[in-house]
Nucleic acid binder design. Structure first.
Length: 469
RNA sequence: GGUCCCAUCGUCUAGGGGUAAGGAUAUCGGCCUCUCACGCCGAAGACACGGGUUCAAUUCCCGUUGGGACUACCA
Protein backbone atom coordinates (compact mmCIF):
# COMPACT_ATOMS: atom_id res chain seq x y z
CA UNK A 1 0.00 0.00 0.00
CA UNK A 2 2.65 2.49 1.03
CA UNK A 3 4.80 1.58 -1.93
CA UNK A 4 2.06 0.87 -4.35
CA UNK A 5 3.19 1.66 -7.85
CA UNK A 6 1.47 4.67 -9.37
CA UNK A 7 -0.75 3.96 -12.34
CA UNK A 8 -2.56 6.81 -14.04
CA UNK A 9 -4.51 7.12 -17.24
CA UNK A 10 -5.65 9.68 -19.75
CA UNK A 11 -9.00 8.76 -21.27
CA UNK A 12 -10.04 11.04 -24.12
CA UNK A 13 -13.19 10.37 -26.06
CA UNK A 14 -12.60 10.48 -29.81
CA UNK A 15 -15.43 12.83 -30.60
CA UNK A 16 -13.11 15.62 -31.72
CA UNK A 17 -9.52 16.78 -31.72
CA UNK A 18 -7.46 16.93 -28.55
CA UNK A 19 -7.99 20.39 -27.15
CA UNK A 20 -5.75 22.24 -24.76
CA UNK A 21 -7.83 21.35 -21.73
CA UNK A 22 -7.47 17.67 -22.45
CA UNK A 23 -3.82 18.14 -23.27
CA UNK A 24 -3.18 19.71 -19.90
CA UNK A 25 -4.95 16.88 -18.13
CA UNK A 26 -2.83 14.43 -20.08
CA UNK A 27 0.28 16.41 -19.20
CA UNK A 28 -0.46 16.44 -15.47
CA UNK A 29 -1.04 12.70 -15.54
CA UNK A 30 2.10 12.13 -17.53
CA UNK A 31 4.25 14.29 -15.26
CA UNK A 32 2.85 12.57 -12.20
CA UNK A 33 3.58 9.14 -13.62
CA UNK A 34 7.08 10.06 -14.77
CA UNK A 35 7.94 11.61 -11.45
CA UNK A 36 6.73 8.64 -9.44
CA UNK A 37 8.23 6.10 -11.77
CA UNK A 38 4.70 4.94 -12.47
CA UNK A 39 2.74 3.93 -15.50
CA UNK A 40 0.84 6.21 -17.85
CA UNK A 41 -1.97 4.54 -19.74
CA UNK A 42 -3.84 5.89 -22.73
CA UNK A 43 -7.43 4.77 -23.08
CA UNK A 44 -9.80 5.81 -25.81
CA UNK A 45 -13.36 6.12 -24.51
CA UNK A 46 -15.38 5.36 -27.59
CA UNK A 47 -18.50 3.80 -26.15
CA UNK A 48 -20.57 6.47 -27.83
CA UNK A 49 -20.54 4.89 -31.25
CA UNK A 50 -22.43 7.70 -32.92
CA UNK A 51 -20.06 10.45 -32.01
CA UNK A 52 -16.74 8.63 -32.02
CA UNK A 53 -14.62 8.65 -35.14
CA UNK A 54 -11.36 7.09 -36.22
CA UNK A 55 -10.06 10.40 -37.47
CA UNK A 56 -10.55 11.95 -34.05
CA UNK A 57 -8.76 9.06 -32.41
CA UNK A 58 -5.89 9.46 -34.85
CA UNK A 59 -5.72 13.19 -34.27
CA UNK A 60 -5.55 12.62 -30.53
CA UNK A 61 -2.68 10.16 -30.84
CA UNK A 62 -0.89 12.51 -33.19
CA UNK A 63 -1.32 15.36 -30.72
CA UNK A 64 0.03 13.30 -27.86
CA UNK A 65 3.03 12.30 -29.91
CA UNK A 66 3.72 15.81 -31.03
CA UNK A 67 3.67 16.98 -27.42
CA UNK A 68 5.98 14.18 -26.45
CA UNK A 69 3.54 12.61 -24.01
CA UNK A 70 4.40 8.98 -24.51
CA UNK A 71 2.28 6.30 -22.90
CA UNK A 72 3.36 3.04 -21.37
CA UNK A 73 0.25 1.07 -22.17
CA UNK A 74 -2.51 1.30 -24.69
CA UNK A 75 -4.15 2.82 -26.40
CA UNK A 76 -6.98 0.70 -25.14
CA UNK A 77 -10.24 1.14 -26.95
CA UNK A 78 -13.29 0.68 -24.77
CA UNK A 79 -15.29 -0.48 -27.74
CA UNK A 80 -13.10 -3.59 -27.78
CA UNK A 81 -13.44 -4.34 -24.11
CA UNK A 82 -17.13 -5.03 -23.83
CA UNK A 83 -16.57 -8.45 -22.28
CA UNK A 84 -14.96 -6.77 -19.29
CA UNK A 85 -17.97 -4.54 -18.77
CA UNK A 86 -20.39 -7.38 -19.39
CA UNK A 87 -18.71 -9.44 -16.73
CA UNK A 88 -18.63 -6.50 -14.35
CA UNK A 89 -22.33 -5.88 -14.77
CA UNK A 90 -23.16 -9.53 -14.25
CA UNK A 91 -21.21 -9.51 -11.03
CA UNK A 92 -23.14 -6.49 -9.81
CA UNK A 93 -26.45 -8.09 -10.68
CA UNK A 94 -25.58 -11.33 -8.96
CA UNK A 95 -24.53 -9.41 -5.88
CA UNK A 96 -27.89 -7.69 -5.91
CA UNK A 97 -26.19 -4.34 -6.50
CA UNK A 98 -27.77 -3.78 -9.91
CA UNK A 99 -31.09 -4.61 -11.52
CA UNK A 100 -32.87 -4.73 -14.83
CA UNK A 101 -35.15 -1.82 -15.55
CA UNK A 102 -37.93 -1.91 -18.12
CA UNK A 103 -38.90 1.74 -18.04
CA UNK A 104 -39.14 3.39 -21.46
CA UNK A 105 -37.06 6.44 -22.31
CA UNK A 106 -40.03 8.62 -23.19
CA UNK A 107 -41.79 7.62 -20.00
CA UNK A 108 -38.73 8.67 -18.00
CA UNK A 109 -38.39 11.87 -19.94
CA UNK A 110 -41.99 12.63 -19.07
CA UNK A 111 -41.41 12.02 -15.38
CA UNK A 112 -38.31 14.16 -15.43
CA UNK A 113 -40.21 17.05 -16.92
CA UNK A 114 -42.99 16.74 -14.40
CA UNK A 115 -40.55 16.64 -11.51
CA UNK A 116 -38.75 19.71 -12.84
CA UNK A 117 -42.04 21.51 -13.28
CA UNK A 118 -42.91 20.83 -9.67
CA UNK A 119 -39.46 21.97 -8.57
CA UNK A 120 -38.31 18.48 -7.59
CA UNK A 121 -35.12 16.68 -8.43
CA UNK A 122 -35.37 14.97 -11.81
CA UNK A 123 -34.08 11.63 -10.64
CA UNK A 124 -35.16 8.12 -11.47
CA UNK A 125 -38.08 7.12 -9.25
CA UNK A 126 -36.87 3.57 -8.70
CA UNK A 127 -39.94 1.97 -10.21
CA UNK A 128 -38.17 -1.25 -11.27
CA UNK A 129 -35.72 -1.25 -8.38
CA UNK A 130 -37.34 -4.04 -6.39
CA UNK A 131 -39.39 -5.77 -9.04
CA UNK A 132 -36.82 -8.49 -9.66
CA UNK A 133 -37.16 -8.16 -13.42
CA UNK A 134 -35.02 -10.09 -15.87
CA UNK A 135 -33.48 -8.86 -19.09
CA UNK A 136 -35.86 -7.98 -21.88
CA UNK A 137 -35.63 -6.27 -25.27
CA UNK A 138 -35.12 -2.60 -24.69
CA UNK A 139 -34.38 -2.92 -20.99
CA UNK A 140 -31.37 -1.44 -19.23
CA UNK A 141 -29.38 -2.30 -16.13
CA UNK A 142 -29.28 0.17 -13.28
CA UNK A 143 -27.15 0.49 -10.19
CA UNK A 144 -29.01 -0.08 -6.96
CA UNK A 145 -27.65 2.98 -5.25
CA UNK A 146 -28.02 3.71 -1.54
CA UNK A 147 -31.06 5.81 -0.73
CA UNK A 148 -29.49 7.65 2.17
CA UNK A 149 -26.18 8.40 3.78
CA UNK A 150 -23.31 10.43 2.44
CA UNK A 151 -20.51 9.77 0.01
CA UNK A 152 -17.34 11.67 0.55
CA UNK A 153 -13.78 11.61 -0.63
CA UNK A 154 -10.56 13.48 -0.12
CA UNK A 155 -9.53 15.24 -3.27
CA UNK A 156 -5.77 15.76 -3.61
CA UNK A 157 -6.36 19.24 -4.97
CA UNK A 158 -9.62 20.42 -3.49
CA UNK A 159 -9.66 18.71 -0.14
CA UNK A 160 -12.67 17.00 1.36
CA UNK A 161 -15.79 16.89 -0.79
CA UNK A 162 -19.06 15.36 0.34
CA UNK A 163 -22.38 14.55 -1.24
CA UNK A 164 -25.71 13.49 0.13
CA UNK A 165 -26.67 10.16 -1.44
CA UNK A 166 -30.19 11.46 -1.80
CA UNK A 167 -28.90 13.67 -4.57
CA UNK A 168 -27.88 10.64 -6.57
CA UNK A 169 -30.13 8.14 -8.29
CA UNK A 170 -29.96 4.69 -9.82
CA UNK A 171 -27.82 5.45 -12.80
CA UNK A 172 -27.90 3.32 -15.91
CA UNK A 173 -24.91 1.00 -16.26
CA UNK A 174 -25.88 -0.85 -19.39
CA UNK A 175 -27.84 0.66 -22.21
CA UNK A 176 -30.72 -1.02 -23.97
CA UNK A 177 -28.42 -1.74 -26.92
CA UNK A 178 -26.15 -3.66 -24.57
CA UNK A 179 -23.35 -1.11 -24.48
CA UNK A 180 -21.91 0.11 -21.17
CA UNK A 181 -22.43 3.68 -20.07
CA UNK A 182 -19.59 6.03 -19.31
CA UNK A 183 -19.67 5.59 -15.54
CA UNK A 184 -19.67 1.83 -15.72
CA UNK A 185 -16.95 1.60 -18.32
CA UNK A 186 -14.72 4.05 -16.49
CA UNK A 187 -14.92 2.25 -13.19
CA UNK A 188 -14.64 -1.22 -14.69
CA UNK A 189 -11.59 -0.14 -16.69
CA UNK A 190 -9.94 1.77 -13.89
CA UNK A 191 -10.24 -1.31 -11.69
CA UNK A 192 -9.19 -3.62 -14.48
CA UNK A 193 -6.12 -1.54 -15.29
CA UNK A 194 -5.17 -1.01 -11.68
CA UNK A 195 -5.44 2.75 -11.74
CA UNK A 196 -4.24 4.25 -8.46
CA UNK A 197 -4.72 7.97 -9.12
CA UNK A 198 -7.39 9.66 -11.14
CA UNK A 199 -6.29 13.11 -12.25
CA UNK A 200 -8.98 14.73 -14.36
CA UNK A 201 -10.88 17.96 -14.96
CA UNK A 202 -13.07 19.21 -12.17
CA UNK A 203 -16.10 18.93 -14.40
CA UNK A 204 -15.95 15.37 -13.07
CA UNK A 205 -16.26 16.28 -9.42
CA UNK A 206 -19.98 15.66 -9.56
CA UNK A 207 -19.42 12.34 -11.30
CA UNK A 208 -17.10 11.12 -8.61
CA UNK A 209 -19.70 10.08 -6.01
CA UNK A 210 -21.58 8.11 -8.67
CA UNK A 211 -18.41 6.28 -9.58
CA UNK A 212 -17.50 5.74 -5.94
CA UNK A 213 -20.88 4.10 -5.48
CA UNK A 214 -19.97 1.63 -8.22
CA UNK A 215 -16.63 0.89 -6.55
CA UNK A 216 -18.46 0.21 -3.33
CA UNK A 217 -21.10 -1.91 -5.01
CA UNK A 218 -18.45 -4.15 -6.53
CA UNK A 219 -16.42 -4.10 -3.35
CA UNK A 220 -13.20 -2.55 -4.64
CA UNK A 221 -11.02 0.00 -2.88
CA UNK A 222 -11.06 3.54 -4.18
CA UNK A 223 -8.35 5.25 -6.17
CA UNK A 224 -7.08 8.68 -5.15
CA UNK A 225 -8.78 11.58 -6.86
CA UNK A 226 -7.30 14.88 -7.99
CA UNK A 227 -9.62 17.28 -9.78
CA UNK A 228 -7.86 19.88 -11.80
CA UNK A 229 -9.69 23.18 -12.35
CA UNK A 230 -11.03 23.80 -15.81
CA UNK A 231 -9.59 26.00 -18.49
CA UNK A 232 -12.07 28.63 -19.61
CA UNK A 233 -12.31 30.80 -22.66
CA UNK A 234 -11.74 34.57 -22.52
CA UNK A 235 -15.43 34.98 -21.74
CA UNK A 236 -15.04 32.72 -18.73
CA UNK A 237 -17.21 30.11 -20.38
CA UNK A 238 -16.29 26.53 -20.91
CA UNK A 239 -13.83 26.05 -23.76
CA UNK A 240 -15.48 25.45 -27.10
CA UNK A 241 -15.02 25.95 -30.81
CA UNK A 242 -16.30 29.44 -30.62
CA UNK A 243 -13.22 30.42 -28.68
CA UNK A 244 -11.17 29.87 -31.80
CA UNK A 245 -8.19 27.58 -32.04
CA UNK A 246 -8.28 25.18 -29.18
CA UNK A 247 -6.88 22.10 -30.81
CA UNK A 248 -3.34 21.10 -30.02
CA UNK A 249 -2.59 20.48 -33.67
CA UNK A 250 -3.77 23.96 -34.54
CA UNK A 251 -0.99 25.36 -32.39
CA UNK A 252 1.51 23.17 -34.14
CA UNK A 253 0.27 24.51 -37.46
CA UNK A 254 0.48 28.06 -36.18
CA UNK A 255 4.16 27.52 -35.58
CA UNK A 256 4.38 26.90 -31.87
CA UNK A 257 7.01 24.57 -30.50
CA UNK A 258 5.66 21.62 -28.54
CA UNK A 259 7.74 22.66 -25.57
CA UNK A 260 6.06 26.06 -25.56
CA UNK A 261 2.66 24.46 -25.32
CA UNK A 262 3.80 22.11 -22.57
CA UNK A 263 5.29 24.97 -20.60
CA UNK A 264 2.25 27.21 -21.04
CA UNK A 265 -0.18 24.48 -20.18
CA UNK A 266 1.61 23.41 -17.06
CA UNK A 267 1.77 26.96 -15.77
CA UNK A 268 -1.95 27.33 -16.22
CA UNK A 269 -3.02 25.99 -12.87
CA UNK A 270 0.32 24.90 -11.53
CA UNK A 271 3.14 27.06 -10.29
CA UNK A 272 6.54 26.79 -8.72
CA UNK A 273 7.25 30.08 -7.02
CA UNK A 274 8.11 32.73 -9.57
CA UNK A 275 9.60 30.37 -12.14
CA UNK A 276 8.06 30.68 -15.60
CA UNK A 277 10.28 28.55 -17.81
CA UNK A 278 10.89 24.89 -17.24
CA UNK A 279 12.65 22.12 -19.04
CA UNK A 280 10.83 18.81 -19.22
CA UNK A 281 13.27 17.35 -16.70
CA UNK A 282 12.55 20.19 -14.30
CA UNK A 283 8.85 19.64 -14.65
CA UNK A 284 9.16 15.97 -13.91
CA UNK A 285 11.14 16.82 -10.80
CA UNK A 286 9.17 19.77 -9.59
CA UNK A 287 5.60 18.99 -10.49
CA UNK A 288 3.25 18.30 -7.63
CA UNK A 289 -0.49 18.17 -7.21
CA UNK A 290 -0.07 20.22 -4.05
CA UNK A 291 0.90 23.21 -6.14
CA UNK A 292 -2.02 22.93 -8.49
CA UNK A 293 -4.40 25.81 -7.79
CA UNK A 294 -8.09 25.42 -7.13
CA UNK A 295 -9.53 28.05 -9.40
CA UNK A 296 -10.26 27.91 -13.10
CA UNK A 297 -7.99 29.77 -15.46
CA UNK A 298 -8.36 31.48 -18.78
CA UNK A 299 -6.18 30.37 -21.63
CA UNK A 300 -4.44 33.43 -22.96
CA UNK A 301 -2.01 33.14 -25.85
CA UNK A 302 -0.20 36.44 -25.19
CA UNK A 303 2.14 34.92 -22.71
CA UNK A 304 2.52 31.77 -24.76
CA UNK A 305 3.56 33.81 -27.79
CA UNK A 306 6.30 35.43 -25.78
CA UNK A 307 7.42 32.06 -24.45
CA UNK A 308 7.47 30.65 -27.94
CA UNK A 309 9.66 33.53 -29.08
CA UNK A 310 12.06 32.80 -26.25
CA UNK A 311 12.24 29.13 -27.07
CA UNK A 312 12.79 29.90 -30.73
CA UNK A 313 15.70 32.15 -29.82
CA UNK A 314 17.20 29.34 -27.77
CA UNK A 315 16.80 26.74 -30.48
CA UNK A 316 19.73 25.98 -32.77
CA UNK A 317 19.57 27.21 -36.36
CA UNK A 318 19.78 23.67 -37.48
CA UNK A 319 16.68 22.53 -35.69
CA UNK A 320 14.89 25.72 -36.66
CA UNK A 321 15.68 24.97 -40.29
CA UNK A 322 14.08 21.59 -39.88
CA UNK A 323 10.96 23.11 -38.34
CA UNK A 324 10.86 25.92 -40.86
CA UNK A 325 11.08 23.77 -43.96
CA UNK A 326 7.50 22.44 -43.95
CA UNK A 327 6.19 25.97 -43.55
CA UNK A 328 8.28 27.18 -46.48
CA UNK A 329 7.06 24.32 -48.61
CA UNK A 330 3.52 25.23 -47.75
CA UNK A 331 4.33 28.70 -49.05
CA UNK A 332 5.35 27.16 -52.33
CA UNK A 333 9.10 27.14 -51.98
CA UNK A 334 10.67 23.88 -53.01
CA UNK A 335 14.16 22.59 -53.73
CA UNK A 336 15.37 24.29 -50.61
CA UNK A 337 19.04 24.26 -49.77
CA UNK A 338 19.39 23.12 -46.19
CA UNK A 339 22.40 25.33 -45.54
CA UNK A 340 20.61 28.38 -46.77
CA UNK A 341 17.49 27.62 -44.80
CA UNK A 342 19.66 27.27 -41.71
CA UNK A 343 21.27 30.64 -42.35
CA UNK A 344 17.89 32.17 -43.04
CA UNK A 345 16.55 30.87 -39.74
CA UNK A 346 19.56 32.38 -38.03
CA UNK A 347 18.72 35.83 -39.31
CA UNK A 348 15.08 35.54 -38.31
CA UNK A 349 15.13 33.80 -34.94
CA UNK A 350 15.44 37.03 -32.96
CA UNK A 351 12.37 38.49 -34.54
CA UNK A 352 9.99 35.58 -34.91
CA UNK A 353 7.43 34.67 -32.33
CA UNK A 354 6.30 31.61 -34.24
CA UNK A 355 7.76 29.41 -36.94
CA UNK A 356 4.98 30.52 -39.20
CA UNK A 357 5.99 34.12 -38.67
CA UNK A 358 9.53 33.09 -39.44
CA UNK A 359 8.39 31.56 -42.70
CA UNK A 360 6.56 34.72 -43.62
CA UNK A 361 9.60 36.80 -42.84
CA UNK A 362 11.75 34.44 -44.90
CA UNK A 363 9.82 34.53 -48.12
CA UNK A 364 11.82 37.35 -49.69
CA UNK A 365 14.93 35.20 -49.55
CA UNK A 366 13.37 32.61 -51.79
CA UNK A 367 11.29 34.62 -54.18
CA UNK A 368 12.67 34.75 -57.70
CA UNK A 369 11.40 38.25 -58.19
CA UNK A 370 10.56 40.36 -55.17
CA UNK A 371 7.81 42.92 -55.28
CA UNK A 372 8.06 46.25 -53.56
CA UNK A 373 5.50 47.15 -50.96
CA UNK A 374 3.79 50.21 -52.27
CA UNK A 375 4.51 52.46 -49.34
CA UNK A 376 8.08 51.26 -49.09
CA UNK A 377 8.64 51.91 -52.77
CA UNK A 378 7.22 55.39 -52.59
CA UNK A 379 9.07 56.40 -49.50
CA UNK A 380 12.50 54.91 -50.08
CA UNK A 381 13.10 54.14 -53.74
CA UNK A 382 13.56 57.75 -54.79
CA UNK A 383 15.83 59.16 -57.49
CA UNK A 384 18.02 61.02 -55.01
CA UNK A 385 19.52 57.82 -53.68
CA UNK A 386 20.49 56.57 -57.15
CA UNK A 387 24.08 57.89 -56.90
CA UNK A 388 24.56 56.17 -53.57
CA UNK A 389 23.18 52.89 -54.87
CA UNK A 390 25.48 53.06 -57.84
CA UNK A 391 28.47 53.85 -55.71
CA UNK A 392 27.85 50.99 -53.32
CA UNK A 393 27.17 48.65 -56.19
CA UNK A 394 30.59 49.32 -57.59
CA UNK A 395 32.23 48.65 -54.26
CA UNK A 396 30.27 45.46 -53.70
CA UNK A 397 31.13 44.14 -57.12
CA UNK A 398 34.81 44.25 -56.23
CA UNK A 399 34.42 42.09 -53.14
CA UNK A 400 35.97 38.64 -53.35
CA UNK A 401 34.05 37.41 -50.33
CA UNK A 402 30.57 38.41 -49.35
CA UNK A 403 30.34 37.97 -45.62
CA UNK A 404 28.68 40.11 -43.02
CA UNK A 405 32.00 41.38 -41.63
CA UNK A 406 33.45 42.26 -44.99
CA UNK A 407 30.24 43.94 -46.01
CA UNK A 408 30.20 45.98 -42.85
CA UNK A 409 33.75 47.21 -43.48
CA UNK A 410 32.92 48.05 -47.04
CA UNK A 411 30.01 50.11 -45.85
CA UNK A 412 32.08 51.96 -43.28
CA UNK A 413 34.38 53.16 -46.06
CA UNK A 414 31.49 53.97 -48.29
CA UNK A 415 29.74 56.00 -45.58
CA UNK A 416 32.89 57.92 -44.75
CA UNK A 417 33.58 58.86 -48.34
CA UNK A 418 30.08 60.06 -48.86
CA UNK A 419 29.86 61.63 -45.42
CA UNK A 420 26.57 60.06 -44.63
CA UNK A 421 25.09 57.87 -41.95
CA UNK A 422 24.08 54.30 -42.50
CA UNK A 423 20.55 55.43 -41.77
CA UNK A 424 20.43 57.22 -45.07
CA UNK A 425 20.96 54.17 -47.24
CA UNK A 426 19.83 51.33 -45.00
CA UNK A 427 16.14 51.63 -45.66
CA UNK A 428 16.37 52.11 -49.45
CA UNK A 429 18.74 49.20 -49.58
CA UNK A 430 16.44 47.09 -47.44
CA UNK A 431 13.57 47.79 -49.78
CA UNK A 432 15.75 46.96 -52.76
CA UNK A 433 16.77 43.66 -51.22
CA UNK A 434 13.52 42.57 -49.61
CA UNK A 435 10.76 44.76 -50.95
CA UNK A 436 9.83 45.59 -47.39
CA UNK A 437 10.69 48.08 -44.68
CA UNK A 438 11.06 45.44 -42.01
CA UNK A 439 13.62 42.69 -42.19
CA UNK A 440 16.77 41.32 -40.59
CA UNK A 441 19.89 43.46 -40.78
CA UNK A 442 20.94 44.31 -44.32
CA UNK A 443 24.42 42.85 -43.97
CA UNK A 444 23.14 39.48 -42.82
CA UNK A 445 20.63 39.53 -45.62
CA UNK A 446 23.25 40.17 -48.25
CA UNK A 447 25.47 37.45 -46.92
CA UNK A 448 22.66 34.92 -47.03
CA UNK A 449 21.46 36.02 -50.44
CA UNK A 450 24.97 35.88 -51.83
CA UNK A 451 26.76 38.33 -54.03
CA UNK A 452 24.95 37.59 -57.26
CA UNK A 453 21.46 37.78 -55.92
CA UNK A 454 22.16 40.79 -53.75
CA UNK A 455 23.68 42.78 -56.59
CA UNK A 456 20.95 41.65 -58.86
CA UNK A 457 18.30 42.99 -56.55
CA UNK A 458 20.08 46.29 -56.11
CA UNK A 459 20.42 46.76 -59.84
CA UNK A 460 16.77 45.87 -60.29
CA UNK A 461 15.92 48.63 -57.85
CA UNK A 462 18.08 51.05 -59.78
CA UNK A 463 16.27 50.18 -62.98
CA UNK A 464 12.98 50.47 -61.19
CA UNK A 465 13.78 53.95 -59.91
CA UNK A 466 15.03 55.13 -63.29
CA UNK A 467 11.86 53.92 -64.88
CA UNK A 468 10.10 56.39 -62.64
CA UNK A 469 7.86 53.66 -61.36
C1' G B 1 -34.24 25.13 -9.73
C1' G B 2 -31.08 21.51 -6.86
C1' U B 3 -26.10 19.81 -5.73
C1' C B 4 -20.85 20.52 -5.93
C1' C B 5 -16.56 23.62 -6.84
C1' C B 6 -14.14 28.40 -7.13
C1' A B 7 -12.77 33.94 -6.11
C1' U B 8 -5.01 38.44 -5.56
C1' C B 9 -3.19 43.49 -11.27
C1' G B 10 -6.63 42.75 -18.15
C1' U B 11 -4.47 37.53 -18.15
C1' C B 12 -1.28 33.50 -15.68
C1' U B 13 0.19 33.50 -10.76
C1' A B 14 3.50 34.06 -5.70
C1' G B 15 2.34 35.02 -0.88
C1' G B 16 0.08 34.80 3.64
C1' G B 17 -2.77 37.34 10.56
C1' G B 18 1.36 42.71 11.01
C1' U B 19 4.35 42.86 3.53
C1' A B 20 6.27 48.82 0.14
C1' A B 21 1.05 42.59 -1.60
C1' G B 22 6.21 39.90 -5.36
C1' G B 23 6.98 37.83 -10.48
C1' A B 24 5.49 36.95 -15.61
C1' U B 25 2.79 38.63 -19.79
C1' A B 26 0.05 42.36 -22.10
C1' U B 27 -0.24 47.99 -22.20
C1' C B 28 2.25 52.87 -22.02
C1' G B 29 6.91 55.93 -21.81
C1' G B 30 12.35 56.18 -22.42
C1' C B 31 17.26 54.27 -23.91
C1' C B 32 19.88 51.31 -27.66
C1' U B 33 19.66 51.08 -33.12
C1' C B 34 20.29 50.32 -40.52
C1' U B 35 14.08 48.91 -40.07
C1' C B 36 11.61 45.42 -37.01
C1' A B 37 12.80 42.73 -33.11
C1' C B 38 16.08 41.61 -28.96
C1' G B 39 18.09 43.90 -24.62
C1' C B 40 17.98 47.57 -20.69
C1' C B 41 15.37 51.35 -17.58
C1' G B 42 10.72 53.26 -15.89
C1' A B 43 5.10 53.91 -15.34
C1' A B 44 0.32 52.43 -14.55
C1' G B 45 -2.39 48.12 -12.73
C1' A B 46 -5.16 43.43 -7.91
C1' C B 47 -6.53 41.02 -2.57
C1' A B 48 -15.26 40.99 -5.18
C1' C B 49 -18.67 42.78 -1.08
C1' G B 50 -20.71 42.47 4.05
C1' G B 51 -20.38 40.57 8.78
C1' G B 52 -17.65 38.18 12.51
C1' U B 53 -12.82 36.08 15.27
C1' U B 54 -8.44 38.95 16.67
C1' C B 55 -4.47 44.02 19.47
C1' A B 56 -4.28 43.29 14.01
C1' A B 57 -7.29 40.67 8.45
C1' U B 58 -6.18 40.42 1.75
C1' U B 59 -4.95 35.89 4.65
C1' C B 60 -9.26 32.24 9.39
C1' C B 61 -15.03 31.53 9.83
C1' C B 62 -20.03 32.72 8.04
C1' G B 63 -23.09 35.07 4.53
C1' U B 64 -23.88 37.81 -0.12
C1' U B 65 -22.57 38.48 -4.99
C1' G B 66 -20.24 36.69 -9.19
C1' G B 67 -18.30 32.68 -12.15
C1' G B 68 -17.96 27.51 -13.41
C1' A B 69 -19.45 22.33 -13.35
C1' C B 70 -22.94 18.43 -12.89
C1' U B 71 -28.03 17.29 -12.91
C1' A B 72 -28.79 11.74 -20.03
C1' C B 73 -29.62 4.88 -22.20
C1' C B 74 -22.74 11.92 -23.89
C1' A B 75 -18.03 11.36 -22.21
Amino acid sequence: MAHEKVVVRFPPSPTGYLHIGGARTALFNWLFARQKGGKFILRIEDTDRQRSTDEAAKAILESMEWLGLDWDEGPYFQSRRYDIYEDFIERLISKGQAYHCHCLPNELEQKRKEAMARGLKPKYDGKCRDMGLGPAPGSVVRLKAPLSGITQFHDLIKGSIRFDNEELDDLVLKRSDGSPTYHLAVVADDINLGITHIIRGDDHVNNTPRQILIYKAIGESLPQYAHVPMILGPDRARLSKRHGAMSVLAYRDMGYLPHTLINSLVRLGWSYGDQEKFTIEELINKFSLKNVGKSAGIFNTDKMLDLNARYIRETSNNILAELLTPFLKKSGFHNLDREIVTAVAGTLKMRSKTIREMAEGASFYFQERITYEKKADKKFLKPEILPLLEDITERLQKLPVFTKDVLEKTFVDFLEKNEIKLKKVAQPLRVALTGKTVSPGIFEIMEVLGKDKALDRISNAVVHIRAGK
